[in-house]
Amino acid sequence: MVEVSTPVRWALRLAAVAYVFFLVAWPVALVVRQTFSNGLDNLIEAFQDPHVVNALELTLMVAFWAVVINTLFGVTISILLVRYEFPGKRLLSALIDVPLSVSPVVVGLALLLVYNGRDGWFGPTLEANGLQVIFDTPGMIMATCFVALPLVIREVVPTLTEVGDDQEQAARSLGANARQTFWRITLPSIKWAVIYGVVLSLARSLGEFGAVKIVSGNVTGRTQTATLMVEAKYQNFQQGTAYATSFLLILVSIACLVVVAVLRPKHP
């Protein structure tokens, strides 16, 4: 293995650490410090604001449903992509990746064009049947599902490929039906990949901003999620509350990272 000379090694090390420190570590630390600049006042004040509590509850609810839907969809599509052959498979596996490179604003616009109640493609029909999508929770869940769609699939597909289908075939030859094979063989073998995908999806879903902003209408106390709350509070010069809400979001996302970092080595 090529060894670089000591001064070069130190220079590279310093460059890497300094870049990450100034771009990520210090700014994040500053926000955490500002949250606690008056002790716990900012956090207490935030939790006493009914709008903040409402936003946090809404965020959890939207993220929960988005993660559930994406996990079911993701595991199904991963198994189909890895274990079966069908026409259009390559195209499908390419299309799955599209949500990762689409701007959140474009996601919002796309859903708006189809589901808005005034002149959307399906919106008026759905609203006539009592289902309001845009400016309500279903639209927010859909927007969140859209942006986090590939995350579970991207974790499960490589694991499923790696594991192979020898055990599944053995189970089937011993008389297990499809359901037994899935619950007893397939699911346990991809368990960690699914959990990892769920954690990533959760982090992404809790933090979605742009797409949700467009489809939710951003109504304080009704369709305002935690990230939208941060923007509103900051622009209203209630920076203490904005910092406190951000701190909670930072805490959750770093917790997700730590969970992932702990899980990862167990299934190399």
């Binding site: 982090a203 901003f209 935690a226 990230t227 941060v230 979001l249 990272l257």
Partner: peptide
């Protein structure tokens, strides 16, 4: 940066 909400 992957995990942090963009507004944050």
């Amino acid at each position: 940066p992957f995990a942090l909400p963009t507004i944050v």
